[in-house]
Structure formats: structure tokens, C-alpha cells
Amino acid sequence: MNSKIVYVSIIVFLAYLTSGEGMSLRGLGIDPRCRCVETESRRIGKYIESVLFFPASSHCKDTEIIATLKSTKQKICLDPAAEWVIKFIEKKSKSIKKT
């Protein structure tokens, strides 16, 4: 009877450790999947307040560009292959290097 309690205790303890390990990425501020499900390819450059750039990683094979709109503060994923997005990012990166 005591051996069954020990086995169950070990299994419960290992399950606890395993669940904590899976959650550790979120605790570190890392999302284990892509942030963008859909991307915007229409020209909205004049409405953009700020941009976050996330290069491809082991968690997401895609480069992700997330823009925050000026008026609504809504976050929108931009299509990194859209020509206007490429030019917009180049222009912003040049202005950052000058400052």
C-alpha cells in the first residue's frame, strides 16, 4: 500500500514539474507562437504611430511587423512583403540612425 502512495506522489510531482516547464516561456515574456494571424497590405503609413519588428525565430518562421495606429491605438500586423511596408521600415530605420 505504501508503494502505491509513493508512485502516485512521484507521478503528481513530475506532472507538476512538467506543467511549470511548459509555462516558463510565457513567464519570461516569450510567446511560443506567431503573433500575427492576418496581415494588412493596404497603405496605412500615415496612420501609424509606432512599429514593432520581430524577426523570424524558433517560435515563428515569419518576420512580424506590428504597427500601432495613431488615433485608435489599435495594433495591426503589416505584411512584411508589401512594397510600401519595406519602404516605410527603411525610412523609419534611417531616421532612427540619424538621431
Rank of each mutant, 00 (worst) to 15 (best):
K70T: 11
R42P: 00
S9M: 07
K94H: 02
K97F: 11
K61P: 10
S3A: 12
K73F: 11
M1P: 10
G20C: 06
G20K: 06
F13T: 02
L69W: 04
T68V: 11
S95K: 13
E40K: 02
T72Q: 05
L52W: 09
T68F: 06
I76W: 12
Y47C: 04
Y7S: 12
F54W: 10
K91P: 00
E90F: 00
L78K: 06
V8I: 15
T18I: 10
Q74H: 12
Y7A: 15
F13A: 11
T72H: 03
A82K: 00
V51W: 01
T72L: 06
W84Y: 08
I48N: 02
G20Q: 06
M1I: 12
S58L: 05
M1C: 09
A81I: 10
R33V: 09
G22Y: 11
R26F: 04
V85Y: 03
S50H: 06
D79K: 03
E49P: 04
F88Q: 00
R26P: 00
E21N: 09
C34V: 08
Y7V: 08
R35S: 06
R35G: 01
A67Y: 12
I89M: 13
E49N: 05
I10H: 03
S41T: 05
Y47R: 15
L52V: 05
I96Q: 09
I10R: 08
M23S: 07
I10G: 08
L52R: 15
K98S: 13
S41Y: 00
E90M: 05
L28G: 03
P32F: 07
N2A: 11
R35K: 14
S24P: 00
E49Y: 09
D79Q: 10
I44F: 01
K46C: 00
R43F: 08
I65G: 06
E38Q: 12
A81E: 15
A81L: 14
V12D: 07
M1A: 13
V37Y: 10
A67T: 11
A15S: 15
E90A: 02
I86K: 07
Y16A: 06
I5C: 01
G27C: 01
D31M: 11
Q74L: 14
R43Q: 01
K73V: 01
L78P: 01
S3C: 12
T39A: 09
S71K: 15
R33H: 15
L14I: 14
C34A: 10
K91E: 12
K4I: 14
V37L: 07
A15P: 00
V8A: 15
V37H: 06
V51G: 03
S3E: 15
C60Y: 13
A56R: 15
T72E: 07
R43D: 09
S93W: 02
S41Q: 06
L17R: 05
K87I: 04
L28M: 04
V12M: 09
F13L: 13
K46T: 07
I65Y: 03
I11S: 12
W84L: 04
S95Y: 05
G27L: 11
E38K: 13
K91C: 04
C34Y: 09
S3K: 12
L52Y: 05
E64K: 05
C60K: 15
R33L: 11
T63G: 01
A82N: 04
I30V: 13
F53T: 05
P55Y: 03
M23W: 04
I66P: 05
K97C: 08
